[in-house]
Design a protein around this nucleic acid. Structure first.
Lengths: 234, 234
DNA sequence: TAATCGCCGATTGTCGACAGTTTAGACTTG
DNA sequence: CAAGTCTAAACTGTCGACAATCGGCGATTA
């Protein structure tokens, strides 16, 4: 008689993962631009607002700190990370480094299924282009790049990508509008996929470089436009 | 009359960072092989042993979790990360990806001072070779590679390197002995530095690939030798 | 007038406690 | 004897409390 785990693959709903929930809420608030860069994150305030005690909030804050969204000043509290021009360079440099590698690996692992997923995602990008929803557009954009990292098959690399993406989401959220024509953005993904399908490492790297370099320049330009930052409501 | 801040450069002592201290102690215990992979980290136990309460221990554990040294099973606690063959591949893959980029950037930023630091570090490696202290040897080895990341000048990349290094330290700590003749190890760093000094990106990448590939093979071999892991005192 | 000092409210760091869950071991049963 | 069941101890997740510390504001002084 099998009383043990009925083998239905239900992804164990962690009902009571307060820390995770708090972390998600905080992340959300940060990338959406509430809680602007430099603003202080008051533990008690967040706790009260979410109806929990300070302990889970502190742990969540530590998570976001390690993730780079918050910085901790001992005895003074957590603050939303502020971006300097250097930071943008750093993030895109690292992203370039990661995505080059990921794309080459993805090409090596590419199967008909994963290839179709990538193609489908570019279609989604085109479909999104008509909706006027920058946040969603950005999200689907990252999903394409994330897919490449997934296909590459290195879990640590995927997590690194996610961390970088959350910093970038914050940045883009601050900018508030899209840095280019949505259809244009969708189109610029096609050569990257083509290169991956072709499977020539050098060509892959070249196209990834071009694609990310483009995004970097656009973001850099827009950031310079709106700098200094939206006032940090301390 | 300047009554403002007497500009004596005192490096701000943040004595009371319990969380940081606990995190360091835990890291130490893990990479030294006490707390073997798979073993449970009992909050109350650690807390009692260190004479603190559970709150700082939990926060420190969350840090190490994000860093990849611990994994959290909700409602069951924190466990020391276990390594599979895949993990080793992943870590070295990512390391390759990072260090290639770092070395190229470092070559671009190289100054006489930083070049001398690298040379000096190789000397240190040779000096260490005669002492019979594997842990120290490994430490100085990483310090060379870390220097390259520092010179590259990307703080995020440096942090990523540190994270990878702490996982590798844990691995090496488990192996317990050095995977090669110490002098040989010291020597294998020289072509890398030479390539960086020469400044040809392709040659840099080639030498970094060779150097890291070598380490990866050696570690992989030794890990296969001693697998399955030292019993996890659960 | 401008810089400094000292106090007060606000906030952090840490602790001990409690409820609910998991685990281990004794016990039962086929 | 194997498999299952039950019970008690151990542990985690969360909370509220308290002391230490920080930042701001007004008083003080040159």
């Amino acid at each position: 008689m099998r009383t043990m785990s009925p083998p239905v693959g239900l992804p164990a709903l962690n009902e009571t993962d307060l820390v995770g929930q708090v972390a998600r809420r905080l992340t959300e608030a940060i990338v959406q631009g509430r809680l602007p860069p430099g603003s202080k994150v008051v533990e008690a305030g967040i706790a009260r607002e979410l109806g929990v005690s300070r302990a889970p909030v502190r742990e969540a804050a530590r998570l976001l700190e390690q993730q780079g969204l918050l910085v901790a000043h001992p005895r003074r509290g957590f603050f939303v990370r502020e971006f300097a021009a250097d930071d943008i360079d750093e993030i895109y440099d690292l992203r370039l480094c990661v995505e080059r590698h990921a794309a080459v690996l993805a090409a090596r692992n590419l199967t008909p299924e994963t290839r179709d997923m990538l193609r489908r995602q570019i279609e989604v990008l085109h479909e999104m282009a008509d909706l006027d929803d920058p946040a969603r557009q950005v999200e689907e954009d990252y999903r394409f790049h994330r897919l490449i990292c997934e296909i590459a098959g290195n879990k640590r690399m995927l997590r690194l990508f996610d961390d970088l993406a959350s910093e970038l989401r914050m940045l883009i959220g601050l900018i508030g509008r899209l840095y280019d024509d949505p259809h244009e953005i969708a189109r610029t993904h096609e050569p990257v996929l083509a290169a991956i399908e072709a499977g020539h490492p050098e060509r892959i790297v070249a196209h990834v470089d071009y694609h990310i370099g483009h995004a970097r320049r656009e973001v850099g330009r827009l950031v310079r436009d709106i700098a200094p930052w939206p006032a940090a409501a301390k």
